[in-house]
Design a protein around this nucleic acid. Structure first.
Length: 603
DNA sequence: ATCTTGTTTC
């Protein structure tokens, strides 16, 4: 809103519009009075009493009238001082009025005002806080002089907004200057190391912290605990946690999350019990920990007892249900959440879509898609990736591709999902074309991308092409073949009927083949009716997983197909009651907008 | 000026 106020002209007709509505009328009247005073102060300001400008500006800021403050700035014949501009911008940051802050910056540029270091740092911080890292970087690069604060702000911002490598690079650059890192820079860069799981570098910096004699504070302590926790050194993290002089909620929360991520929920529970203060993050970390470790019931119990839920609590439940194969409950929670008046955010939508994808619930997925557009999250890359996957898993490859074309931003997951989608639908050549296009667009494939490419070759019967990618992946894409890639290659040979090649490939593997690799061979033997190899594959699989009922079933089917009824019966008898219970896999299908579950062999 | 919880491809 531009505040072009010509009091005499605009006010009366506006008031008349609301004449009948008494409250609105009063509001209007008050507003008009305010405007008149404002105008008066403006005039006195620009004419005689310029010295009151800073005072008036600060007063307006405190009343939250930032736009009016900007107007005064523009009207002033002389620029205000550095302190006033800094104060104004800090208010913008506090009130998250970033677009206004940007306008102030533009204004400063227009009048050719050269900021001092403190003001420049505040501008830098404004861009950093709202995640506009390109603007922040420009600000930083163009600063004629930088102090510790300038470095601290930019390092912290890079770390916070997911550019941990950049944070580390800048930290090293800072050390090339005459400036010494203090506890601010140290805690930010340690947090970046934690995010990268860069233990070596983190420990190196930890040593520096000690030798530099830098003042420690809770932030630094927390960053160190987080570093060791995220790098799997839970014991070390716990040691530091115990030694903390002023343990706080944050350090406790970090420990709970660390124990949860390492499958040690009992210890997480101990920390939770002993915490003198808990906040919603404490509860959410516990819930997430239980969900990550498959303890859905425990997570539910906590969710019921949590004193105050936020959007993260709900998302943790929805994502947790979906991750634990309970997608129906995930969708129910998603609906329940909205009934309580809680608004989903991008992450909630992404989790709900995962549940739809798991169940191939196209109608639900499309309804959520509508909601996403209505709530303005349709440009989020995570949301779009989840949508892409949902449409692909629901079998609508047309819609998947259309969405892919329209996406404003793509990352490696986007490309992998689309390639995987083509693979699922047997469109091998399309997948390969996209894989080549992805590289032209400058996105580096990861281990999942290569797995999707191999799967595409597998589903389309492109044996030679698959082999070629497999042999060059380490060298060309810097992705070392892992178990899942070997498993996929066995699948590729097996489906094509090259059973002996598949067997020899397994024998030549540099890592010990796991159950899924033998399972792939077993499956192929079933399709191509090879009793000898099938028996071998089943034996190896059962060595690794003695309770794998599916192995017995498939092997018995191989015997049956070969007419070997005695072996068939003997194999069947190996299946215990306990194994039998786990046998039939659940599948989901959507009929008339209702999600139904059915068992294998159901009609 | 700095910290912790939930999201996408296997």
């Amino acid at each position: 809103m531009a505040i072009a106020i010509t009091v005499g002209m605009t006010q009366p007709c506006r008031l008349n519009l609301h004449w009948k509505n008494n409250t609105k009328h009063k509001e209007r009247e008050a507003k008009a009075m305010q405007m008149l005073q404002f105008q008066a102060s403006l005039e006195s300001n620009t004419k005689a009493n310029r010295k009151t400008s800073p005072h008036l500006l600060r007063k307006l800021c405190k009343q939250g009238r930032l736009k009016e403050a900007l107007h005064i700035l523009r009207e002033m014949e002389q620029p205000a001082d550095h302190f006033t501009y800094t104060f104004l911008l800090q208010e913008c940051i506090k009130k998250k009025a970033f677009s206004l802050g940007k306008l102030i910056h533009t204004h400063l540029n227009e009048i050719g005002f050269v900021p001092d270091t403190v003001l420049a740092n505040t501008l830098l911080n404004m861009y950093a806080k709202c995640g506009r890292m390109l603007d922040a970087r420009k600000m930083f690069d163009e600063m004629p002089e930088r102090d510790e604060c300038s470095w601290n702000v930019i390092i912290a911002a890079y770390s916070r907004h997911g550019f941990a490598e950049e944070a580390l690079t800048l930290f090293h650059q800072m050390q090339q200057t005459d400036l010494q890192p203090n506890q601010f820079a140290y805690s930010s860069v340690l947090s970046a190391c934690a995010k990268l799981a860069a233990l070596e570098q983190g420990m190196e910096i930890h040593k520096q912290v000690i030798s530099s004699g830098c003042a420690t504070d809770v932030f630094l302590d927390c960053a160190l605990i987080e570093l060791y926790a995220k790098c799997g050194r839970v014991e070390k993290a716990h040691q530091l946690f115990e030694k903390m002089l002023q343990p706080n909620v944050v350090s406790g929360n970090i420990m709970i999350a660390a124990y949860g991520q390492n499958g040690r929920m009992e210890e997480a529970g101990k920390v939770f019990q002993d915490m003198p203060k808990r906040d919603v993050i404490t509860w959410n970390a516990m819930i997430t920990g239980f969900m990550q470790n498959g303890c859905v019931d425990e997570a539910q119990k906590l969710f019921r007892t949590i004193p105050k839920r936020n959007v993260v609590s709900w998302t943790a439940m929805i994502a947790g249900y979906a991750q634990n194969g309970r997608s129906e409950e995930a969708l129910k929670s998603f609906l329940q959440m909205q009934r309580t008046g809680m608004k989903p955010d991008a992450q909630t939508f992404a989790s709900a879509l995962t549940a739809c994808a798991n169940m191939a619930a196209l109608q639900h997925g499309m309804e959520i898609h509508d909601e996403i557009v209505k709530s303005g999250f349709q440009y989020d890359v995570f949301v779009n990736n989840a949508l892409l996957d949902m449409y692909a898993k629901c079998g609508d490859i047309e819609k998947t591709h259309n969405l892919f074309d329209k996406m404003p931003k793509r990352n490696v997951v986007t490309w992998s999902t689309m390639i995987g989608g083509y693979a699922m639908h047997g469109l091998g050549m399309e997948a390969i074309k996209l894989f080549e296009e992805m590289q032209i667009c400058g996105t580096k494939p990861n281990h999942v991308t290569l797995l999707c490419v191999l799967m595409a070759c597998c589903h389309a019967g492109l044996v030679e092409k698959g082999l070629q990618y497999f042999h060059t992946m380490s060298e060309c894409y810097d992705v070392k073949p892992a178990m899942e890639h070997y498993g996929c290659m066995v699948d590729l040979f097996g489906r094509a009927g090259h059973l002996n090649t598949a067997r020899d490939f397994i024998y030549k593997m540099p890592i010990k083949p796991d159950a899924t690799v033998w399972g792939s061979l077993l499956g192929a033997c079933s399709v191509h009716k090879n009793v000898g190899l099938g028996k071998l594959a089943a034996e190896r699989l059962l060595e690794l997983e003695p309770d794998n009922a599916t192995a017995y079933v498939v092997l018995s089917n191989i015997y049956a197909a070969a007419g070997m009824w005695e072996d068939h019966e003997n194999t069947r008898r190996m299946i215990t009651d306990e194994m039998d219970k786990k046998l039939p896999g659940h599948s989901w299908i959507e009929v008339n907008k209702q999600v139904h579950s059915f068992l294998a062999d159901d009609s």
